[in-house]
Amino acid sequence: MLERKRRKNATEVTFVLPEGDPPGPVSVVGTFNDWRPGTHVLAPRPDGRRAVTVELPAKGTHAFRYLAAGDYWFNDEGADGHDGANSRLRT
């Protein structure tokens, strides 16, 4: 799930996943962090879900995926679209 907050020249995007699904650490990787695993690791929220917030330039399109333990890559079904193996996000 994606949560967005529009700012003057940027959009804060919060990537949210359910608690423990998939198990272990999960990071969001994409064009906004040069596809570097571990740069944006989802952390537990008080409600049990996991999330990380990334500030992205306004009016852009970004490709991303999630990477979980065991080299398990997966997409966000709530993304703005999909292009091949990647989820797409418009800010």
Rank of each mutant, 00 (worst) to 15 (best):
A10P: 03
A10W: 02
A10M: 05
A10T: 07
T11N: 10
T11Y: 03
T11H: 06
T11R: 06
E12I: 07
E12K: 09
E12T: 06
E12M: 04
E12S: 12
E12R: 10
E12W: 00
E12G: 01
V13P: 06
V13C: 07
V13S: 05
T14C: 04
T14I: 04
T14D: 01
F15L: 11
F15E: 12
F15Q: 11
F15K: 02
V16I: 09
L17T: 00
L17K: 07
L17A: 02
L17C: 02
L17G: 06
L17I: 13
L17M: 05
L17V: 03
P18A: 09
P18S: 03
P18R: 04
P18H: 07
E19A: 15
E19P: 00
E19T: 07
E19L: 10
G20T: 09
G20M: 09
G20W: 07
G20L: 10
G20K: 01
D21C: 08
D21K: 12
D21F: 01
D21I: 08
D21A: 13
P22R: 06
P22M: 12
P23F: 10
P23E: 15
P23W: 09
P23A: 15
P23L: 11
G24A: 14
G24K: 11
P25A: 15
P25C: 09
P25T: 15
P25K: 14
P25F: 13
V26T: 12
V26R: 03
V26E: 08
V26M: 09
S27M: 12
S27L: 11
S27W: 02
V28S: 10
V29N: 05
V29E: 10
V29F: 00
G30S: 04
G30R: 00
G30K: 06
G30A: 05
G30Q: 04
T31S: 15
T31N: 01
T31D: 12
T31Q: 11
T31P: 05
F32W: 09
F32G: 01
N33G: 05
N33P: 07
D34T: 14
D34P: 08
D34R: 14
W35Y: 13
W35K: 09
W35F: 11
W35V: 11
R36V: 15
R36P: 08
R36Y: 10
P37N: 14
P37G: 13
G38H: 05
T39V: 12
H40N: 14
H40P: 04
H40Y: 15
V41Y: 05
L42D: 03
L42F: 06
L42I: 00
L42T: 01
L42K: 02
L42H: 06
A43N: 10
A43P: 01
P44L: 13
P44T: 06
P44W: 13
P44G: 09
P44Y: 04
R45F: 04
R45Q: 14
R45V: 02
R45G: 06
R45H: 07
R45N: 12
P46H: 04
P46C: 02
G48M: 03
G48V: 03
G48L: 02
